[in-house]
Design a protein around this nucleic acid. Structure first.
Lengths: 205, 205, 205, 205
DNA sequence: TTTTAAACGAGACGGTACGTCCTGTCTTGCT
DNA sequence: AGCAAGACAGGACGTACCGTCTCGTTTAAAA
């Protein structure tokens, strides 16, 4: 689904009201802000197309023209936010990078507004396979790349074996975090993420 | 939410139409079956109180009398099913028990109808904190006990140290499974669950 | 259209909110009053289902449950009003009765609120053959009977020949009135209706 | 509303897309044909500005530039057609001329496409006083002149008294026809129009 | 037995949001 | 300057469910 994120490509200059050169940037931004605000203020059930339209000062039809559903609006809003967070720093040291990244991930998922959007999207994905596919393609695949970055750097450095099963390793590292966030609701403190890193590295000795 | 699961206690004998002493078992069963059917056939969005009532041949009011919401009906239906599956067998051997239990869990979550109910409930829990609390209290806590059973038995047998952090261990073992099921949508074959067990046990040597 | 006007038959007693004994009289009355008010205040285009619902304090669904369209609501309202007016008095004298009836008819059509409803319905009938058929069956046929009443009484009295073409005679008498009301928009003063009566009776001498 | 009918005066040459020399005749014709087609095919409710624009291959703005509303387009289309029909022939004989004219009028109103347009316009006039005024000024006044033509010729010939109330006479002759067409929906056969003429002339003997 | 009160089926009610359609206005680039 | 194209804010449409509320019936414990 590209219409949400490529508005800047289509529109050459202005964000005025309707014209033949594509969508209004003003409307797009207003919608994305409105959807974020509504989700945080009223929860997922409080996010309605009518509510977004009213809050953004936009016509419903304008929303339907560019987004197939409210979750696609949320995904659009999420993509804008996600890249800003969660790019693991290159510290030259696997353990440090993993500790930093996992604790940041836990914080992002549990404490930030985009994290709340993520949880809502992950929730909705359970109800709608098509949406789940879009969610994975647009949001999760990028995230997955970032999650594996410390490991791939360590492999390049020779700190991890070249035949490491990356998929499995990433699942082991971040799986328990998502499990706590999405299933048990337990807190995910640094002590927990550090322990995950410890046990992941220990067995390699 | 207790009224859903204790109906059998209140009703003395029959499940015919109105009576002055407790709820109709006929109605309860019809509702639980209808909700399961609808979820599997039409997905979570296709589960509506009106639809359940029509399918079960029951009045809406009867549903509202006994369940606060459609997710509570689903939880009621889920509880009935869950216990049947997923009780790990006592095989006297940690590795075997873990392999068996984790692969059964993966199968339950991804391939069975109650698994679909679970995913729907887990999804809805992301949108509704109150419901999430009920979900954890009624469904997950039991499951959590079962998940830790092989480890606790191993501790009793002396195969695992007494000071083992059970919570962390369970999270490491089942977290990646739930992560695949709820987030990435990747399949969860026995090869994957076996690998989880391997790596969990390896470092103990 | 019968569901609108036979509510009193179906509902045995109360006008409370929903019950199994048919529709709420309170809602029905509120809708009919709202539709009349809106037509007079804002014209036909200002009559909307949403506006009626809001004004009557009624849910849209309740309106759709009982009336197929807004014109059917207007017809229902019109039927209630029409009978009150326009029953020609029995004065024992053809000329007097005709003069009275035609001038009353003209006044009804041009100066009263139900007359405005009639004009709106007659207008809509031009756009919708099905509605036109309902309109004729429910509203006009009764009116037609009243219009011919003075002539039929005169025939009974022997003041008019028994083989009089009633249809033609009524068309000649009231046709020009409706023509002015619906087509030319000219006023229809008593001088005009009296002249119609004169010319109708003159040729019989 | 004059902009619709004087286009031919302004445009000097072509009807291509945008040009700097007044309106496009191509667009005007396409719109008038589209509106006629749509009215006949889908009825008045099926006539929308968007539909006309799509069918005529014309931009909505072009329509709004030249016509204030869809009924004005219909009036424009109607004026073109009306003059062609309904000019009563000069037969030198009042009765013949009246018989011919009234039966042609009845046929025009009930059986022709322009007649359908007329009925739609007359219907809409009931809902919109401003439009009714335009309708009378642009369409009906001409028609009224034609309707009275046989009578005026007869007065000139001395076949009718010079002090004849022309308005009343015309109303008596055509009123019943319009009444049947617009109100009762009864057919208007020659037998009916002939009877109207008979009775109109009889009383003069 | 007869009474009687709780639970039942049915379904109308006031609402909210849905997704669609059309309105009339606007801006742009082409002819 | 007029045009085709089409995005825009707005608003009504008719539908689907929500959760609440009578109704009149069914039922079995209490009287």
């Amino acid at each position: 689904m590209g219409e949400g994120s490529d508005g800047g490509v289509v529109v050459p200059r202005t964000g005025h009201h309707g014209n033949r050169h594509g969508r209004s940037q003003r409307a797009r931004q207003a919608v994305l802000e409105a959807v974020d605000d509504l989700l945080v203020e009223r929860g997922f059930a409080g996010v309605t197309i009518e509510g977004i339209a009213a809050r953004a000062g936009v016509a419903k039809q304008t929303i339907y023209r560019w987004w197939p559903s409210k979750v696609d609006i949320l995904m659009d809003a999420f993509v804008d936010d996600m890249a800003q967070h969660l790019t693991p720093p290159d510290q030259g040291d696997l353990e440090s990078e993993l500790r930093t990244h996992l604790s940041r991930l836990a914080d992002f998922l549990t404490r930030t507004d985009p994290g709340a959007v993520f949880r809502a999207l992950a929730g909705q994905a359970q109800h709608d396979p098509d949406m789940a596919a879009r969610f994975r393609a647009e949001c999760l695949s990028q995230q997955r790349v970032l999650d594996s970055l410390p490991l791939r750097r360590a492999v390049e450095r020779g700190d991890l074996p070249a035949d490491l099963d990356l998929d499995l390793a990433v699942d082991q590292l971040v799986g328990p975090i998502y499990y706590r966030v999405l299933v048990t609701g337990q807190p995910v403190p640094p002590a927990f993420t550090d322990a995950l890193v410890d046990r992941f590295l220990t067995r390699r000795d």
